[in-house]
């Protein structure tokens, strides 16, 4: 119930932010569509702590700030590699452990790896990820496991 209410709230805010017209008719249509979408997703049984991760809401901003910093650093590294003449890349493929238990955190971890250019998740298994990196240093940083620690801290 809590998750359904939260989702209806998010949907209502989404409608209000996107429409820009606040006449009675359009607000009524908005309320109607929020109700229909809530009903459909309730029937599909997809509204739970996996799809609406409320418990992550307060821990996420700090992680996202750190992630933006990482994205800056890895972009700078890749820009240097692209503009440098000669042989700029030395690809590595290896497995990296996947310590998270919940699906949300596993997806957050894999998506964070993909968001930082230079590292890419190819495949996801029960307890490991198959990773392609452009350089040996990128793989070393992942295996050192700072990002994994931070995502695991989200879980607790």
């Amino acid at each position: 119930m809590r998750y359904s209410l939260a989702m209806a709230g998010f949907l209502a805010i989404f409608w209000l932010a996107n429409s820009g017209h606040y006449s009675g008719l359009l607000l009524g249509l908005g309320a109607l569509s929020v109700l229909v979408v809530s009903w459909i997703s309730h029937r599909m049984d997809v509204v739970d702590h996996e799809s609406i991760p409320l418990h992550l809401l307060f821990k996420l901003p700090r992680y996202l700030l750190w992630l933006v910093g990482q994205i800056f650093l890895s972009n700078l590294d890749l820009v240097r590699r692209v503009w440098r003449p000669g042989t700029p890349i030395d690809p590595v493929v290896a497995r990296v452990p996947l310590p998270q238990d919940s699906d949300v955190c596993r997806v957050v971890y894999a998506n964070s790896i993909n968001l930082t250019p230079g590292t890419l998740t190819i495949d996801m298994e029960q307890d490991s990820l198959l990773i392609h990196t452009l350089s040996r240093e990128g793989m070393d940083a992942l295996q050192e496991g700072e990002m994994a620690r931070r995502v695991t801290a989200l879980e607790q």
Partner: peptide, 12 residues
Amino acid sequence: YARIHACGVTET
């Protein structure tokens, strides 16, 4: 695979 990384720069 290296080209996917290059795409990543333009997308993030």
